[in-house]
C-alpha cells in the first residue's frame, strides 16, 4: 500500500553532471527557474527543453525519466490547461473560437493554455534534474554551505541541515517499518480496504500507534548514540568530504547565465508568437 511512495529519485551514474558541486546544482537550478520565467514567447521554450535534454544525455540518464518526473503533476497540468482555456484574457476584440453559455474559448486563451502547460512541464523537468543527479545527503550538505552566511544572524544552519539529513535518512526505514506492521496486522485479520471512510481511517490505528512508538524509540536511541559520540551541534565541526568548486562548476554556471541571456536577447529580436 505504501510501496509506491518514492522520495528522492536519485539516479546513480558516473557522469560530469553527477560530480558537480551540490552548491552549483542548487544555484543553476535557481537560474534555470529564472530562465523559464523569462520566457514569454512559446518558441523560446525550446531553450530550456534543449538544456534539459542535453543535461540528461551528459548525465547518462534515460530520457523516459522526464516523463516520470512529470507524471505526479499530470492532473495539475491538465487542470491548469482547462482552466486557462476558459479564462478570458484581457485582450480587446478576442478572436472567439467557441462559445456556449458562459464558457468561451478564444485564440488568446488557447495560446495561454499552451504557454502555461509548457512552462509547468519545463519547470518540473528541469528542477527534477537536480534530484536525479544529487543524493539527498549531498544536497543538504550543499544547502548547509550555501546558507552558512545566515549564521551571522544566529540562524541554526547546521542544525537545520542535520535535521533534514536525519529525516531523509529515516524515510526508507519508516516505510519498511510500515510494511512490517501492516503485514503483522493483516496476519491478525485486519482489513484496511473495505468499509466507510471513517471505518478505514480507524483501521489505520493499529498501524499508526506502533509506528509512532517505534519512531520515538528510534529518535531516542539516535540522540543517545549521537551524544555518546560527543555530538554537540555545528560549532567547530569539520567535514569529512569538504566541498570544492572545480572548473566544471564554473562552466555549468556560465552555461546557465548564457541561456538566460540568449532567451532575453532572442525574444527581443524575434517578437513573434
Amino acid at each position: 500500500m505504501f510501496k509506491d511512495i518514492t522520495l528522492g529519485q536519485y539516479y546513480p551514474s558516473d557522469s560530469a553532471i553527477h560530480k558537480l558541486d551540490p552548491r552549483t546544482k542548487i544555484l543553476t537550478m535557481i537560474f534555470y527557474i529564472v530562465a523559464v520565467f523569462l520566457v514569454n514567447r512559446i518558441y523560446a521554450f525550446i531553450f530550456p527543453a534543449i538544456y534539459v535534454v542535453s543535461v540528461m544525455l551528459i548525465a547518462k540518464i534515460p530520457l523516459r525519466y522526464i516523463k516520470n518526473s512529470i507524471k505526479p503533476i499530470k492532473w495539475i497540468i491538465i487542470f491548469m490547461f482547462i482552466l486557462n482555456l476558459f479564462l478570458s484574457t484581457n485582450v480587446e476584440n478576442p478572436t472567439v473560437v467557441f462559445e456556449w453559455w458562459i464558457l468561451r474559448i478564444t485564440h488568446e486563451s488557447i495560446y495561454r493554455s499552451i504557454y502555461i502547460t509548457l512552462r509547468l512541464i519545463t519547470l518540473v523537468a528541469g528542477t527534477s534534474l537536480m534530484t536525479l543527479t544529487t543524493t539527498p545527503i549531498s544536497l543538504t550538505d550543499g544547502l548547509e554551505r550555501l546558507l552558512a552566511p545566515l549564521k551571522a544572524i544566529k540562524f541554526p544552519v547546521h542544525e537545520l541541515a542535520m535535521m533534514m539529513t536525519i529525516a531523509l535518512r529515516f524515510i526508507p526505514t519508516l516505510l519498511e517499518e510500515v510494511d512490517k506492521i501492516t503485514k503483522a496486522q493483516l496476519a491478525r485479520g485486519a482489513d484496511f480496504e473495505s468499509g466507510s471512510i471513517i471505518k478505514r481511517a480507524k483501521s489505520m490505528i493499529p498501524i499508526l500507534i506502533p509506528l509512532f512508538i517505534s519512531a520515538f524509540r528510534r529518535a531516542d536511541e539516535l540522540a543517545m548514540a549521537m551524544e555518546s559520540r560527543c555530538y554537540h551541534g555545528g560549532e567547530g565541526r569539520t567535514k569529512m568530504n569538504v566541498l570544492k568548486f572545480h572548473i566544471n562548476d564554473l562552466y555549468a554556471i556560465l552555461v546557465m547565465i548564457g541561456m538566460c541571456a540568449v532567451i532575453v536577447v532572442i525574444q527581443m529580436l524575434l517578437p513573434i508568437l
Binding site: 517499518e177 512490517k180 506492521i181 503485514k183 503483522a184 496486522q185 496476519a187 491478525r188 485479520g189 485486519a190 482489513d191 490505528i205 493499529p206 500507534i209 506502533p210 512508538i213 517505534s214
Partner: peptide, 30 residues
Amino acid sequence: RRLVGMVLQYPEYQLFEETVYKDIAYGPKN
C-alpha cells in the same frame, strides 16, 4: 489466512491497544 497464524520478527512492535486484553482480542474480533 485464518488457519495460518503468523508471528513476524519482533512481534512486540505490533502491540497498539490500551490493555493487553484488548490487544489479544484484536485478532478474534477481526
